[in-house]
Amino acid sequence: MDAKTTLVLLYQDGTQNPHADCSVLELVRGPESRSFSENAPLAILRPDIGLHILYDAYRLGMYRQGLDTFDEVLEELSFEALYRNELLLKDDRGNEADPGSLWKLRSGTLILVGDDAHLTIDFANAEPLFNRIA
């Protein structure tokens, strides 16, 4: 359920902007959420329950328009932590992730964010190659 609470917008540069008594829907309807600057939102955090939602403008726009439910948003965008890889990574199919690529951690698996190639890595085997950012 998308309840009103304190939400925090986490930006690319690490700054955080708290929003009291706000739902995710209200937050993504606000003008601040539509910034296309280099310091665009990276995630929406709900500290009271440890919920983290990747800030995907397209998927959140679908929710804003009523085309996705909050449960669908959570299924697609929730994560436990965000990481960036330090080195170029390649899989056995030739897919690559450039250094500094964004990855979300879910259930012990790192998933490459925002790329056409679907890359996943077992976090336990690759932790030293990544830096946690959220």
Rank of each mutant, 00 (worst) to 15 (best):
K90P: 00
I133P: 13
R93V: 13
L74R: 12
P31E: 14
K90F: 10
Y63I: 05
L74Y: 04
L102F: 12
L102K: 09
Q12H: 10
R29E: 15
L88D: 12
R84D: 02
L9K: 07
L60M: 06
I121C: 10
D116Y: 13
P41V: 10
P47Y: 02
V113N: 11
E80A: 02
L102N: 09
A81P: 10
S23N: 06
R84L: 09
Y11D: 06
T5W: 04
A43K: 03
A40Y: 12
N17K: 13
A117V: 13
Y83G: 10
Y11R: 09
I44S: 00
D92M: 09
D115Y: 12
T109K: 08
D116L: 14
K4V: 02
D68R: 00
L87F: 06
D48P: 03
F70A: 04
D2W: 03
G61F: 08
R132A: 04
S33A: 13
D56W: 01
L119P: 05
R106G: 05
A43R: 07
P18Q: 02
H118Q: 15
L45T: 00
S23H: 02
Q12T: 14
G14H: 10
D71W: 00
A20H: 11
R59F: 12
L54N: 01
L87P: 02
M1N: 00
L54F: 07
L77S: 00
A43I: 07
Y58G: 06
L112W: 10
H52V: 06
L27T: 02
E32R: 13
T120L: 01
H19E: 03
G50A: 06
E86H: 15
Q65E: 15
N85D: 08
D21V: 03
T15V: 09
Q12I: 00
